[in-house]
């Protein structure tokens, strides 16, 4: 299954690695390691450079308010006793932040589920059903891939105002779903098309209905692609600022709650730093746990 799907470059990675492992003796490998010492040093420096900013935010979030405006985060390395989790304690005592955390989860989870369902249905239809206008419709989907969401903000703002969807979690979920769909449909269709034809034909000859095939066959087989899409959409929605800023007032996800704090940057870093770290810790955990699917989805979306 994996090998036949067009969206899985993992096989290629594995093959390269295999070739390297068998191609040379251990001695030659050790010798080359020494010859390339400077390269390793360079790469370590780059990796550290890339990690420092996030680490800096984390350490800053541990500084007591009295220190935060006085000193740089690196002083904590010399004085580890300065570090405290008090900022986080205060953060969770802050009603607005806790509410916005719940709102963020609602938006991200609701949107991810809705998008996966709608995109899978459409992706299956584009991959395995024949109907007039199919190719034209799919080209339209491809065209919509790059439409900037700014183009939709003003009319949807007016629409939401008049329908009561303004400032609701549902309104945000629906908007995110729509703008996640072109990529979602594209990804699911390409993955479904990799399903071997004889599996589909035998299911249809057995007289199974399309819905049954979809639920019992397609969804289980499409799980890797669904995982990719779900992670992508979860991160996208979790990290969104502009949509929530436009269609929400009291319905604030974390990013918007922090944004309203940053208007007084400097005076309240002891709130902004831990809140920002909280808002990035969850996507980071999701990413680190499911990195493989994230990368596969990204490659399928960009290289195809």
């Amino acid at each position: 299954m994996e090998a036949s799907a067009p969206t899985h470059p993992a096989g290629r990675f594995a093959r390269t690695r295999e070739r390297e492992r068998t191609g040379e003796s251990r001695l030659a490998r050790v010798g080359r390691l020494f010859a390339r010492g400077p390269l390793h040093v360079l790469l370590i420096v780059i990796a550290v450079l890339w990690l420092v900013p996030t680490f800096a935010l984390f350490v800053t979030s541990l500084l007591p308010p009295s220190e935060i405006t006085q000193t740089g985060w690196w002083h904590v390395i010399a004085h580890p006793s300065l570090a405290t989790f008090d900022n986080y304690k205060h953060l969770f005592d802050n009603h607005d932040i806790v509410t916005s955390l719940v709102t963020t989860v609602e938006i991200a989870v609701g949107n991810t589920i809705l998008l996966v369902v709608v995109a899978s249905l459409a992706g299956y239809a584009f991959a395995w059903m024949r109907f007039p206008g199919r190719d034209v419709l799919f080209v339209i989907v491809i065209a919509l891939l790059v439409v900037p969401l700014q183009t939709a903000l003003i009319p949807i703002f007016s629409l939401y105002q008049s329908t009561g969807l303004f400032d609701t979690v549902l309104g945000l979920v629906l908007f995110h779903t729509a703008f996640g769909l072109p990529f979602g449909i594209f990804l699911m269709r390409n993955f479904f098309m990799g399903i071997p034809k004889d599996i589909m034909e035998s299911a249809r000859i057995d007289g199974a209905s399309e819905l049954r095939i979809f639920v019992k066959l397609i969804l289980p087989l499409g799980l890797p692609a669904i995982a990719s899409l779900a992670i992508f959409q979860f991160l996208w929605t979790w990290n969104d600022l502009i949509v929530a800023l436009t269609f929400g007032r009291n319905t604030q996800p974390l990013t918007v709650a922090i944004f309203s704090q940053t208007r007084q940057f400097g005076s309240n870093i002891e709130l902004i730093a831990p809140a920002s770290f909280l808002s990035l810790a969850i996507p980071l955990a999701v990413f680190l746990a499911l990195q493989r699917y994230f990368v596969q989805g990204m490659l399928a979306g960009s290289v195809k």
Binding site: P53, N239, I258, F259, S279, L280, P283, L284, L288
Partner: peptide, 13 residues
Amino acid sequence: MPMAISLFAAGVI
């Protein structure tokens, strides 16, 4: 790793 972080939080950093 920064790809997982929101651009907004990256900006705060």
